[in-house]
């Protein structure tokens, strides 16, 4: 498989959120606005990049009998690093994403890529795969976050979009709004795909 294909497949054809429906817990929970979605996406991408790289690097050393616990240790290490770094230098984002950062550990997207891709491929293509999958994940979170923020608070990145007369659809930033917008987006995508 060419590197370009590895990269673009994560963006669209095998998009983790819209196509594989992986890691939906953080997707639905943190996307109350575009900034949180973007932040969570980037944090996940960073963890994915590191874990894919290290897993690919160690793919011949890790005995297959303990590969899953080994992957989890590697992922948890990078998640903890992300958490510490965010708390030290991007405190506000850290507070907004709160409990969802540690949950990156159990995002099945990351373990899935380690198991299905990085443990069998060389380092470079694993990194490309991570960037592709991560960008697709970030894109999905950003789109969902933006939609919910626009309808739910009438803002985008905290900038008011509509006049004072706009009554925000509060439901959109509440948990049901996550399911509703996710469902509508998926339906819309399926419609266009099936043409």
């Amino acid at each position: 498989m060419s590197l370009k294909k590895i990269f673009t497949r994560g963006l669209w054809k095998e998009n983790a959120v819209f196509k594989l429906l992986l890691g939906l817990c953080p997707v639905l929970a943190v996307t109350t606005n575009a900034e949180n979605g973007l932040g969570m996406g980037l944090a996940t991408t960073f963890v994915l990049l590191c874990s894919n790289g290290v897993v690919a690097l160690m793919r011949n050393i890790i005995p297959s009998g303990v590969r899953i616990p080994a992957f989890i240790i590697i992922i948890a290490t990078f998640v903890t690093i992300v958490q510490l770094v965010m708390e030290a230098w991007t405190y506000e984002l850290y507070q907004a994403l709160g409990i969802f950062i540690p949950l990156i550990v159990c995002n099945c997207l990351i373990l899935g890529r380690a198991e299905a891709f990085a443990s069998k491929r060389p380092v470079f293509s694993s990194l490309v795969d991570a960037i592709g999958m991560g960008s697709g994940f970030t894109l999905a979170l950003f789109v969902l976050g933006a939609i919910r923020e626009i309808f739910g608070s009438g803002e985008l990145f905290g900038v008011t979009l509509f006049g004072a007369g706009y009554q925000p659809m509060l439901l959109m930033i509440l948990p049901p709004g996550a399911f509703i917008s996710m469902g509508l987006l998926l339906a819309l995508m399926n419609k266009f795909e099936n043409r």
């Binding site: 160690m58 050393i61 890790i62 005995p63 009998g65 303990v66 616990p69 080994a70 240790i73 590697i74 948890a76 290490t77 903890t80 690093i81 510490l84 770094v85 708390e87 030290a88 230098w89 405190y91």
Partner: peptide, 30 residues
């Protein structure tokens, strides 16, 4: 298997202790 897993865990612990000591002061300050 045990040795491999122990080594990985030890490496991860080492890495984390480094990161922790580098971020301890900034986090306190924040």
């Amino acid at each position: 298997l045990l040795i491999a897993l122990t080594l990985i865990a030890a490496l991860s612990g080492l890495l984390l202790s480094l990161v922790e000591s580098a971020t301890r002061e900034p986090i306190k300050e924040q």
